[in-house]
């Protein structure tokens, strides 16, 4: 365990940026802009993934989460810069993840600032015909999408929701079922004519209710105390949360079929559910900056998909069709985990 933690925190988990997905829109294509974009793409922090044909396409890419940072160059970027010695570029940032947004902004400004003079000279050298008044200046303006006041609560509310639900559902369910096993009351219930499946279902219903109440409290606190607006459809926020609650409950049941003491149940819930949920779900550390292996590991953490969906629905306020894939993935988790625990359950009998 300590080895895993040291390695995770030391190497894998960092708040540094790596390969942030950038989309660009250049109304007038020219060699200078190209070179600048290449410079940004060459850095280890950014990868240019999308060259938008128009501004709407860039916005759509933002909604789909195919890009995390957008850059919109001014009309006639090059001619403006050669005449006036200054031009502007707009940087769009995703306010649902403050860490990434602020750092991306910092690095982008840095790259632009350091490379602009070099580039200008290069361009002039390559084509002396061109007139360029040195020194030139590029003025970046930033605008934060979804979270204009840059409140950090916007970032952590979906994460906290994911964490609380994982904790309550998985840990409490598994512990409560295992406790009956430990005390021997489970055996007595299983000898009775009541179907084993019904016994388990009955055990989970109270936790479903508790989780639903927790969900309501969290959402109300987020809205009224932290003033996080639910910009998307409230109905879908609740529906997807309920789906996630069921996924977590089924995880709890799965654990309870695997272990036989309460300590084991708590340990597994904490190590296998809570820690990955905290560290790998993208709540604290950006998933994009993790090593590839950990990125794959994060795929099997249901909380990751849930938190993504909550960010999209609550903060970005997109309609549900933009995160229907996340819903499908959560649903697949539910089916897979439930069938696995039913299988395990029969196996034990």
């Amino acid at each position: 365990m300590p080895v895993v933690m040291i390695v995770l925190f030391g190497f894998a988990l960092s708040t540094e940026l790596k390969n942030v997905k950038v989309g660009v829109y250049t109304p007038t294509d020219d060699i200078f802009t190209r070179k600048l974009i290449d410079r940004i793409g060459e850095s280890e922090y950014f990868t240019i993934v999308f060259d938008a044909p128009d501004k709407e396409a860039l916005d759509a890419a933002f909604l789909n989460n195919t890009i995390e940072v957008g850059m919109i160059f001014q009309d006639n970027f090059y001619s403006t810069i050669s005449h006036d010695g200054r031009a502007s570029v707009q940087i769009l940032l995703d306010g649902t993840n403050m860490n990434i947004a602020q750092m991306a902004q910092f690095y982008l400004r840095n790259i632009i600032g350091t490379s602009v003079q070099e580039l200008a000279q290069e361009v002039v050298m390559a084509d002396p015909e061109l007139s360029l008044n040195l020194p030139v200046e590029i003025k970046p303006t930033t605008s934060m999408l979804y979270n204009p006041q840059m409140k950090s609560s916007f970032n952590f509310v979906p994460g906290v929701m994911g964490m609380i639900l994982t904790l309550v559902c998985s840990m409490m369910t598994s512990v409560s079922i295992v406790r009956e096993k430990e005390r021997g009351t489970m055996e007595v219930l299983l000898v009775s004519p009541v179907k084993p499946f019904l016994v388990i279902l009955a055990k989970t219903i109270p936790y479903f209710v508790i989780s639903a109440l927790n969900l309501a409290t969290t959402i109300l606190l987020a809205i009224y105390l932290l003033q996080v607006p639910v910009s998307g459809s409230m109905l879908w926020v609740v529906m997807i949360s309920l789906l996630y609650i069921m996924v977590s409950l089924s995880l709890g049941i799965l654990v309870s079929t695997l272990v036989s003491t309460q300590q084991e149940a708590i340990l597994i819930s904490a190590m296998v559910f809570l820690m990955p949920t905290l560290l790998l779900s993208g709540m604290l550390f950006p998933i994009e900056s993790m090593p590839v292996i950990l990125q794959y590991v994060s795929y099997i953490i249901p909380a990751r998909w849930y938190i993504d969906a909550m960010k999209a629905l609550m903060i970005q306020g997109v309609s549900v069709k933009y995160c229907i894939d996340l819903v499908a993935i959560l649903f697949a988790f539910l089916v897979a985990i439930t069938s696995l625990s039913v299988y395990k359950y029969k196996d034990r009998l």
């Binding site: 005390r183 021997g184 009351t185 055996e187 007595v188 219930l189 000898v191 009775s192 004519p193 009541v194």
Partner: peptide
């Protein structure tokens, strides 16, 4: 059949009559 397990297996945090009520109900 009826079954009494090795571990004492009533619910300790239920009252006497509640245990009887619970298991009576389970057996319909």
């Amino acid at each position: 059949i009826g079954y009494m397990s090795q571990k004492f297996s009533l619910y300790e945090d239920l009252k006497v009559w509640e245990n009887i009520r619970l298991f009576g109900g389970i057996y319909g």
